Amino acid sequence: MSVELPDQREPVIEGRPDLFLNIIWFDGFQELVRQHNKLQATVASQQDQINDLISRVEALENP
């Protein structure tokens, strides 16, 4: 795939010369993966905090 010469790009689907994958899509996909990973880390952290709170409440209920 060539950025300078768009006529020499490889089609995404064989037989569909009108479909091409632009290099900008890769940057967007990388950002999407970064945001997803960040969200997953946030969810995991919140779940750890919830589990800690549950264990504290259980400890208070059962002296």
Rank of each mutant, 00 (worst) to 15 (best):
I13A: 05
L32W: 06
F26H: 09
I13Q: 03
L19R: 04
I13P: 01
F20K: 07
L19M: 15
L21A: 14
G28L: 05
F29A: 09
E14K: 10
Q30F: 03
K38V: 12
L21W: 01
V33S: 07
Q8E: 14
R16C: 04
T42P: 09
L32H: 11
R9M: 11
Q46P: 08
D27F: 05
R16Q: 05
R9D: 11
Q8P: 02
A41W: 00
F20M: 04
N37R: 11
A44W: 09
F29N: 03
E14I: 11
L19G: 09
R16D: 08
E14N: 07
R34A: 11
I23Y: 01
Q8G: 11
V33Q: 10
R34I: 04
Q8L: 14
E10V: 13
Q35V: 10
D18Q: 08
Q40N: 14
D27G: 08
K38I: 05
R16Y: 08
D27C: 04
E31H: 01
P11N: 02
L32E: 12
Q40E: 13
I24V: 08
R9P: 08
G28S: 03
W25I: 13
E10R: 03
R16A: 04
L21Q: 10
E31T: 11
D48A: 05
V12D: 14
F26W: 03
W25L: 07
V33L: 10
L39M: 06
R34C: 05
N22Y: 08
E10S: 06
Q47L: 08
I24G: 00
F29T: 11
